[in-house]
Amino acid sequence: MADSLILAIETSTGCGSVALTRGTLQQGRVLAEYTHRPDLSHSRRLLGSVREIMTASRLGWDQLDAVAVSLGPGSFTGLRIGMAAAKGIAMAAGLPLFGVTSLDGLACQCPPAGCQLCVLLDARKEQVYGAFYDAAAPGGNPQRRGEILGCTPEELSRLISEPTLMVGPGLEVYQESFAANPLITLVSPALIQPRAAMIGFLGAELLAAGTESTPAGLAPLYVRASEAEINLAKKKAADAASR
């Protein structure tokens, strides 16, 4: 199944992205990808885009191996629409369905930088969703370290004690909050945006790993701001333990 054909949907931010991928991030390719950026309702373009890439790629539904969808965190309404579409397609085509964390998809877009990675999305109310990743080993994907955090950019910045490459659409709004921290290297948010192709590659890995598909109960990831303190506490404890 290393060469599996995946239809992927990513709607965690203000844009909708759909892709057809073959194989995994390390040994795969993007067959088609359509990303719609304007602030249009997700629903208005999503299914039309799915149909377009299927038609353009001259592929039938029966040729797909699985459907992959972003679990978020992100815009809850956007995620629900993407997930409703993914579930409908999976049920109609009799395909397995896999959920992938939006931040993991973003992390996969970064070339190995030899330092830790911090990925962030805007969580509104002056907060971000963030996660840390170990620098990718040669031939491997970046590995997430710990829970997804929901906190203010300042809190996130205070957690950084080693050279860090910071990426993601969260920087569109909060770039300035990190400018003063000399350990942080910022990557233009225009470069790293949610892409369905990454969700497809990571979905292919779940399929190859024999992960069970449980489409019925799949739901968007909640990272509540109220949980921020708990998650932060966990991270601090984990960091202390690893030292």
Binding site: L47, I81, A84, K87, G88, A92
Partner: peptide, 19 residues
């Protein structure tokens, strides 16, 4: 509620499209 409607409506359209 559009957010609620879109779950059922999108699911239905997806079923129809694939089938």
């Amino acid at each position: 509620l559009v957010g609620s409607l879109l779950v059922g409506f999108t699911f239905a359209k997806s079923l129809a499209m694939v089938r």
